Computed example of a mutant assay.
Amino acid sequence: MSAIINEPEVNDNVETEDAVRENVDNKVDNKPAGPDLSMILDIPVQLSLEVGSTEQTVEQILALAQGSVIELNRKAGEPLDVKVNGTLIARGEVVESQGKYGIRIIDIAGGNDRLNSLL
């Protein structure tokens, strides 16, 4: 005589009750699903805007005087690089508001751009 055992059906697409509860709790509290970054939000970082760059010899730099023009590797109207601690994070354009300069972000750098900026 053999016994028939009814095992529960396994469905990999169904979330566990705990996972469903956690998702609902996050949505109710409007918490982001990622890691808690609150401990690092007040750490100062160096934000810089790079119009362009060039390489020059010491002799060329010493020859600079008031009114000298240094040719950069960018064309007029190209976006500036927005860097945090030297790492490219975005590109933007210069804007003026109430007599002060600012930058309007027009593109957020992807992972490949960030990697290339380190090389």
Rank of each mutant, 00 (worst) to 15 (best):
G111A: 14
R91N: 10
D107W: 00
S2T: 10
D113I: 00
G34P: 04
D12N: 10
I103Y: 07
V82K: 02
D107V: 00
Q60A: 15
G86M: 00
N6F: 11
E96P: 06
S48W: 07
L62W: 12
S68H: 06
V51D: 07
Y101M: 06
T16C: 05
A63C: 06
G102F: 02
D29G: 05
R114D: 06
D29R: 03
A33R: 07
G110R: 00
V58L: 07
L119T: 13
T87Y: 12
K31R: 09
S68K: 05
D113P: 00
V82P: 03
E93T: 04
V95W: 01
Q60I: 13
P79G: 03
N30L: 13
G110W: 01
Q56T: 13
D107L: 01
S38C: 09
R114A: 02
E22N: 13
L88E: 09
L64V: 11
V14W: 04
E55P: 11
A63M: 07
E22W: 14
N30T: 14
P44R: 01
L62A: 11
V45Q: 13
P32R: 03
N26Y: 11
I61Y: 05
N116M: 03
V28T: 08
N6Q: 15
Q56I: 14
K75C: 04
V24S: 10
G52H: 00
I106R: 02
L41P: 15
E50L: 04
S53E: 10
L64Y: 15
N23I: 15
R21L: 05
D81L: 10
L62S: 13
I106W: 01
I106C: 02
D42T: 09
D81V: 10
K27N: 12
D12L: 10
E93A: 04
V10P: 08
N26S: 10
V14I: 10
Q56R: 12
L88G: 14
P44C: 02
D12S: 09
G92I: 00
M39R: 13
T16P: 10
